[in-house]
Design a binder for these strands. Structure first.
Lengths: 345, 345
DNA sequence: CGTGGCGATGAAAGCGCTTTCGCGATCGAA
DNA sequence: TTCGATCGCGAAAGCGCTTTCATCGCCACG
């Protein structure tokens, strides 16, 4: 177990020579793909162990014609939303025998190039929300790499999984109206992400249905600080009854802004968010819970299925694109208004 | 841009044939590694685009002898801690030209095998906290794959990066004592993770230094629910003045448990955590902030450096193992006791 | 004893790409 | 016009592994 500074990386040839067999035999022993005499087998295993042999996946993958790896592309991991989705993805993917490559497009400008590069490293790819343009995504799919879109507008011929943003927003709108709120503002940038767009559209539709005018969205980023700043502006003057945050971070920012100017929630102002992050519970924030792990896990399974389909029969025409919308759940707490019974935990 | 169901994946040979050149020329054009006549170059690019050619990274990596990918192993992504570390890692690694493979050992039992397998896919590897046993980690390093340990006890000959858990805990202990707390309980399992062990040890040392008896740790998981349950038991009877949670989730659980039995924080009970998650701010929780992204980014850079060293001169003996301890910061809020000025934001 | 059959093993052909080597062709200078 | 120097490009050798295909003993059976 001494950490020798060996000059050459250990290959299957080394092991073969050390054990006095051919590389074919080494492969068979290590993979267990064919019967090998017990004695030989033992020699090979001993050699592999002695040399700390770790097979190079590149060789294997190249020979097998598959990476045994999938990728997932997301904007970032700030806040629990993407982290949970990625975790759900990783769990499911690794159960299906694939390693997971991640790519955060976050603040990089060469996102498209990075995603294309990633596509060359994987058997299949999940692309989330607001990361790359449609042309890039479509191009990758056309190039033969199965793609699944997540929390994003569908594209022709590509599988898509989303949550019920618009519908949840309608439910939320109705709930707010029921509480007597009339002037409702939306904090978030519909152009910034498909999720936000759906939420805003649903909210607007819900308010219209109640005979109220659709609100103008107040554009802001998805972090607490951005929400706080935007809310501060909004609350300084002719303020609304309720603020619907594009996500919980933004809504929590709105709570801070309200506290800063001495407004009481929910008496003076209602606030709601999206995602049910841990902090929402402690802030008493009404929010919409999304099945984040489930989103990730479903995406992993879908990618896997596409890969399997193609492997089974590369010439068969592709099955039509699948669509799925996962349900969400309104979590009512005290920030949206007083309820008969005290708000749930 | 029609999504043809092509039977064969596009290789460099296809492109070469389509453009009427040799594969060498295609490679040169696409990599830009050697001068190619403008006219030829244009033909090749056109062919590549027409065929949606995405070079297969396996071929390239095998030829180049490097994966251009690094891996990071962590327990899970629940809570912001690991997510932030991973994000910091991804950012730094991709800036250095490496893709990132992730592996969550979470609830799997074949963690060691999975990590070894991962080691065969990468040029270097970061192993976090409580994921695999020392022998596995050491074996991988001995096999020639550069390894960096993160938030984990050092091993001979392997680079290690940690945070100042014990020292921060001492500061925290002093602060609690200063508030007049005497009976201080620790919520967490020191055997469960090196971080927790360090925090407990530091707390115990700090209390000893103040002439107080070292507390027994109350073992519990790292989730809110676990903290709540453990705290509930702890508070039912001869209760402590203060509870130090192994992380914020646990501490938040303790807050819930306290509220459930009508205890006021901080008047009846002080509570502190670790990590400064978003919820801590809204719960007014005193906590210790860790440089999470910085941890990840530093790890990425160290792995990169090791790889570069080895590539530059494979025969040079390895530089001695490096150690680094990143600083933490005590974030005082109201949950630890009353302060002259109201607790920070 | 002679064979067909089978289990164990080795030789070698790729997988898709990069890169060295070398060969014509073209160019500048004498 | 001629000769060495470039330049542009193709041929081919790997990179580490899996996987036919062939071979070689060895056994049981006739």
């Amino acid at each position: 177990m001494k950490a020798l500074s060996r000059s050459k990386p250990v290959t299957i040839y080394e092991v073969a020579r050390h054990a006095g067999v051919s590389i074919a035999t080494v492969s068979r022993v290590l993979r267990g793909t064919a019967p090998v005499a017990e004695q030989t087998s033992a020699r090979v295993r001993a050699a592999a162990q002695a040399l700390h042999f770790t097979p190079n996946r590149l060789g294997r993958s190249l020979a097998e014609g598959r990476h045994a790896a999938n990728g997932i592309v997301f904007p970032d991991l700030v806040g629990p939303y993407y982290a949970e989705v990625v975790l759900g993805y990783e769990e499911a993917a690794s159960e299906l025998g694939s390693s997971v490559l991640i790519l955060a497009t976050g603040r990089r400008r060469d996102a498209a190039a990075a995603v294309v590069e990633l596509a060359g490293r994987v058997d299949g790819l999940v692309i989330m929300g607001n990361t790359v343009d449609d042309a890039t995504a479509a191009g990758i799919a056309a190039g033969g790499v199965p793609v699944v879109l997540l929390a994003r507008e569908p594209l022709a011929g590509i599988d898509t999984i989303r949550t019920r943003n618009a519908a949840s927003a309608k439910v939320l709108a109705a709930h707010l109206v029921e509480h007597g709120h009339r002037r409702i503002a939306f904090l978030g940038d519909p152009a910034g992400s498909p999720d936000v767009a759906g939420r805003f559209a649903g909210l607007a539709a819900g308010l219209r249905a109640a005979g109220l005018p659709a609100p103008e969205p107040v554009s802001c980023g998805l972090e607490t600080a951005a929400g706080e700043a935007a809310a501060a502006v909004l609350l300084d003057g002719d303020r609304p009854d309720a603020i619907v945050g594009a996500n919980d971070e933004v809504a929590l920012g709105a709570l801070l802004a309200a506290a800063a100017v001495g407004l009481r929630v929910p008496d003076d102002l209602a606030v709601t968010g999206w995602d049910d992050v841990l902090a929402a519970r402690f802030a008493g924030l009404t929010t919409v819970r999304q099945p984040m792990r489930e989103l990730g896990a479903t995406a992993a399974r879908w990618v896997h299925r596409r890969i399997a389909e193609r492997t089974a029969d590369p010439n068969r025409p592709l099955a039509p694109a699948r669509r799925r919308i996962l349900p969400t759940q309104l979590v009512v707490r005290r920030s949206c208004g007083h309820h008969g019974t005290p708000g749930g935990s």
